[in-house]
Amino acid sequence: MTNPLLKLDGVHTHIGAYHILQGVDLQVAHGEMTVLLGRNGAGKTTTLRTIMGLWNASRGAVTFEGADISALATPDIARRGIAYVPENMGIFADLTVRENMTLAARGARRVEEVDAARLEWIFGLFPALKKFWQHPAGLLSGGQKQMLAVARAIVEPRKLLLIDEPSKGLAPAIIQNMIAAFRELKQTDTTILLVEQNFNFARQLGDQVAVMDNGRVVHAGPMAALAEDEKLQQDLLGLSLGAHQ
């Protein structure tokens, strides 16, 4: 891959006494969705948190737009145009949907200062957010909370989105809504690195895929190639994507 937007070279991450990432090599191309797959405990979430500076790499380099960001603090990484949607969504339950969105727009002190056209675009992706605009976020359903978490990440244009298991625990109808929203988001030239356990979700959206095992990337390539190769799916993941369609 020539000049990837994001690149990890031999990244190791220790959390206390635990050596979680053990030499991760990963490249994410500009304007594509790369999906991180792997069994529980393989290191996927730790990879996202290390990129975001929430956990520090003990060795190796994380490069974004050609610059090493390994030693930067999380706020400085965010200011470079990277947003992170954690598995626990990271929303403020006691604040309204409107207040959550205003806080996420770093340049706005009042909702009137948020880009109105972009808000309307987000409402088109997630109509429930407009309906519950003045409701406390803690009263939203699980799917609506996930929509809010993604909406907060895109309330301003970002160069890279790191999203951890957006379909986890969601009903099939909500998952289809999320797939449609991500498809539209991909048309905006936004680069996405997605951790996902729903393999049908991943197959429909991913351009590239990287499979992790024991803290390393053990396979990387086009998602279409993995989706068509059931033996490779069994070897890497212990299951068939076809069984989850």
Rank of each mutant, 00 (worst) to 15 (best):
M1N: 08
T2L: 13
N3A: 14
P4A: 11
P4I: 11
K7G: 06
G10H: 14
V11N: 03
T13V: 14
H14R: 09
I20P: 08
Q22H: 09
H30Q: 14
L37Q: 05
R39L: 12
N40H: 04
N40D: 04
A42W: 06
T46F: 03
T47L: 02
T50I: 04
L54G: 02
W55N: 14
N56I: 01
A57C: 04
V62D: 02
I77C: 03
R80V: 03
V85F: 12
E87P: 09
N88K: 06
D94G: 11
L95N: 04
L95A: 12
R98E: 15
T102R: 15
G107A: 14
R110D: 14
E113M: 01
A116W: 09
F123K: 04
L125E: 05
P127M: 12
K130S: 10
G138P: 06
L139M: 12
G143I: 07
A151H: 08
E165S: 07
K168R: 13
G169Q: 12
L170P: 04
I174Y: 08
N177L: 12
F182I: 01
K186I: 07
Q187G: 00
T190R: 05
L194R: 04
N200M: 05
Q204G: 04
D207H: 14
D213L: 08
D213N: 15
N214V: 11
V218N: 08
A225W: 00
A227K: 02
E230F: 03
E230D: 13
Q233P: 09
L236Q: 02
S240L: 06
S240V: 06
L241K: 01
G242P: 00
G242T: 07
A243L: 10
